[in-house]
């Protein structure tokens, strides 16, 4: 269990730790008190993963540039 707040984790970090937590719980050699804490951490990681998965929104934009080719802004792209 590392101390990183779950909310700040990338999907991959959360995924890796969740896998480790599940592995430890399944191994059965965790003291009872720890296993409760482990479960809570695992549940938080799982929620985080699910949240990240739910944030699957497609948003396509074109970058507009000024005369010198520097990015100026975004305009919605309509690409079907």
């Amino acid at each position: 269990m590392n101390g990183t707040p779950v909310a700040e984790m990338s999907f991959e970090e959360a995924m890796k730790e969740l896998e480790a937590v599940v592995g430890r719980l399944e191994s059965g050699d965790v003291p009872l008190e720890d296993s409760i804490k482990l479960y809570e951490r695992g549940a938080a990681l799982k929620d985080h993963c699910q949240k990240k998965l739910a944030e699957a929104e497609e948003k396509v934009a074109l970058i507009t540039t000024d005369a010198d080719g520097n990015p100026k802004g975004l305009q919605p792209a309509d690409i079907k």
Binding site: L25, E26, S35, G42, A43, K46, C49, L53
Partner: peptide, 25 residues
């Protein structure tokens, strides 16, 4: 994404099973 959703559900189930089994054992 669908695979990751399935994976996360599986982890959730294993998490629960793991802690229950720990208590049951």
């Amino acid at each position: 994404r669908a695979e990751l959703i399935a994976w996360t559900r599986e982890q959730e189930a294993r998490l629960l099973r793991g802690v229950r089994q720990g208590v049951e054992r």
